[in-house]
Design a protein around this nucleic acid. Structure first.
Length: 434
RNA sequence: UCCCCAGUAGCUCAGUUGGCAGAGCAGGUGACUGUUAAUCACCGGGUCGCAUGUUCGAGUCAUGCCUGGGGAGCCA
């Protein structure tokens, strides 16, 4: 068996008798007419069953099919101005592939978030979730295309990692044969630094795991991240790469899904049209001044939290790049600014409309002695970083990179309240099923 | 880890001062040739999250627990 015609291609079959395969989304009746809304993953079409066109048994069955019955519907494709897609199917025969074993849990009215999350495997069938997953698909493809077109090589980073790089509290621990404990990766960055010394321009694209007990709309315990790393690139080059990537991803998603963004997700796409490089760039020090001017209490050296991010991002109609954070706030591998040792050559990209940090990255420390001192100062186990120090021992060069979170990008592009809708099966602190 | 909110029918919710457990949707049976969350009539549907307590009497009040949601910190 194979599907004969998809709803998306229905216009090519006007006047023909065809067979559609799909699921019954909704049903209405008006005496001698039954209206079946059938979806097949490419679209939804109204199938009209007229009493005079089918057998009495088929007519009766058409009015008693439960929601999400799977069907093969044969009929005539007719143009109809009343249809949202311009066409209807005038049904001649109807075959039931499978009747639901019990009543479908999801109706067409309101449901609470908790219930929908429990029914996530079925919730995916809704128009809204389909639209979001299609945007996610396009975002992931755009990310791959962006780097591939620029001569980057995709290098897969390991998922199991041997030791805690930045404290075990945020790592998931798994038993690993006779070697003791392993941890699920938080980032492929250190491996990309090694790979960049082999291939020049590299990126990894995979899941990342954080055992942080975070219960916010911006957090998942398992999320997807793309991490490019480039040899012979400094912070300025890194920031250019960041803004070009964000512009490309947003504009590609907008071009491919404008209709769904507007009609299904009710997104104000003018906010996305504005996302054009160059993005505004401000230093951390300038950001602190902006925050202080709004009356929000904050002093130099404090981290920029969620509220502060929103205060800064609100000043602009496009993502803002905040660079040169205090070194003390950043990880050991950030290079310090030669012009001001108090700050690190790092940069975060904050999305507008309160969506927060979508990118974090910067230039890495390339001097062996300085990096060894940083590892000691952070009380990290030196043995675990021997291989990483080798990257500096043999032909060290200035290099930079960053990580961009897929879910936060998709949530921003789709205008969603919570990142959990951007991933097919979200993993959160209090939820691991379905 | 901390703060706030919620839990009543399959779902979304109402439930007055503590006094017989309710509605809409969904489901079932019918009516209707153009419905778009169709409409109309009738029918079935309950461990009021769990436990203890107060009371003649608890969905309602108190205490504890469980589950979920929102937020903070941390981060992408």
């Amino acid at each position: 068996m194979r599907p004969t015609v998809y709803i998306a291609d229905i216009a090519q079959h006007e006047g023909q008798e065809i067979t559609l395969h799909g699921w019954l989304y909704a049903r209405r009746s008006s005496g001698k007419l039954h209206f079946l809304q059938v979806r097949d993953g490419t679209g939804t079409i109204q199938c009209v069953v007229f009493k005079g066109n089918v057998t009495p048994e088929a007519f009766h069955e058409a009015d008693h099919l439960p929601q999400e019955s799977s069907l093969a519907v044969t009929g005539l494709v007719k143009k109809d101005a009343r249809s949202p897609i311009g066409f209807e199917l005038d049904v001649r025969s109807l075959a039931v592939v499978a009747r639901p074993a019990r009543e479908y849990p999801l109706g067409h009215k309101d449901h609470g978030v908790a219930f929908l999350m429990e029914q996530r495997h079925l919730w995916l069938r809704s128009q809204r979730q389909q639209a979001i997953l299609r945007v996610r698909h396009t975002v992931e493809k755009a990310i791959r295309d962006f780097f591939d077109q620029r001569g980057f090589t995709l290098v897969d980073a390991p998922i199991f990692t041997p030791s805690a790089c930045e404290g075990t509290s945020t790592l998931f621990e798994v038993p690993y044969f006779d070697l003791g404990k392993a941890y699920l990766t938080q980032s492929g960055q250190l491996y990309m630094e090694a790979a960049a010394m082999a291939l020049g321009k590299v990126y990894c694209f995979g899941p990342s795991f954080r055992a942080e007990k975070s219960k916010t709309r911006r957090h998942l315990t398992e999320f997807w991240m793309v991490e490019p790393e480039v040899a012979f690139m400094d912070l300025d080059g890194d920031m250019e790469l960041m803004e070009q990537l964000v512009e490309y991803v947003v504009q590609t998603a907008l071009e491919a899904h404008r209709r769904e963004l507007v009609s299904v997700l009710e997104r104000d796409v003018s906010k996305l049209e504005a996302v054009r490089a160059p993005f505004p760039r401000i230093t951390y020090t300038e950001a602190v001044e902006v925050i202080q001017r709004t009356g929000h209490p904050m002093k130099w050296g404090d981290d920029i939290g969620g509220d502060e991010e929103t205060l800064v991002a609100r000043q602009y109609d496009r993502p803002v790049m905040v660079h040169r954070y205090p070194s003390d706030l950043k990880a050991f591998y950030f290079k310090r600014d030669p012009a001001d040792a108090k700050v690190a050559l790092g940069c975060d990209v904050l999305a507008p409309e309160g969506y927060g940090e979508i990118i974090g990255g910067g230039q890495r420390e390339d001097d062996l002695a300085t990096l060894e001192a940083a590892i000691a100062r952070h009380d990290l186990p030196a043995e675990a970083f021997e291989w990483y120090l080798d990257v500096r021992r043999y032909g060290s060069v200035p290099h930079a990179g960053f990580g961009m979170g897929v879910e936060r990008c998709v949530a921003w592009i789709c205008g969603l309240h919570h990142v959990r809708e951007t991933i097919p099966f979200p993993r959160m602190m209090e939820r691991i099923t379905p």
